[in-house]
């Protein structure tokens, strides 16, 4: 078992299934995603069938089942961003990177997540990549943004 996961599970020694979600959150916090092996370990620890652990985990948007990319893209789908076209932004990102929400590109560079509202409605539609906010995103600016991150790797 992964050392980090072991540490987290040790904090929940006599826990039952009530603790499932906090445990999953802590594991994702420390590893960035939920691997099959960690879900299996959690099931064993809580004496819960892994199918149930998987069922609960996949219910929530917050959990990822692929490791995060080097650049993690959060697309705001809050009301203001929606009005100003965030659906198209999301679609364009999926097309450009050939991944769906919750997935990571094969080269491990980009991963994609939807967030409800970042709280910067004045910048709508907004995306956040590794803590950098990109305001008023359009189809044109999007390809430039993605290219700029790809270049960071080449340097």
């Amino acid at each position: 078992m992964n050392e980090q996961t072991k540490k987290i599970l040790n904090k929940y020694l006599h826990a039952d299934r009530d603790s499932l979600i906090p445990i999953l959150q802590e594991i994702q916090e420390s590893e960035g995603w939920l691997s099959e092996s960690s879900l299996t370990e959690v099931g064993r620890h809580l004496n819960m069938p892994v199918s149930k652990v998987y069922g609960v985990a996949t219910f929530y948007n917050q959990f990822r089942f692929q490791p995060q990319g080097k650049f993690h893209i959060q697309v705001c789908r809050g009301t203001a961003c929606h009005v100003l076209g965030s659906a198209t932004v999301l679609q364009e990102i999926q097309k450009a990177l050939k991944i769906k929400v919750g997935e990571t590109t094969k080269d491990g560079l980009f991963s994609l997540e939807i967030v409800a509202c970042i709280g910067t409605c004045g910048l709508a539609p907004v995306i956040n990549i590794n803590g950098n906010f990109h305001a008023g995103v359009t189809t044109e600016s999007l390809s430039e943004i993605i290219e700029s991150y790809k270049e960071k790797i080449n340097i």
Binding site: S51, G55, F59
Partner: peptide, 10 residues
Amino acid sequence: GVACIDISKR
């Protein structure tokens, strides 16, 4: 008592 299946996703 097998529980090999469950409803997943949403």
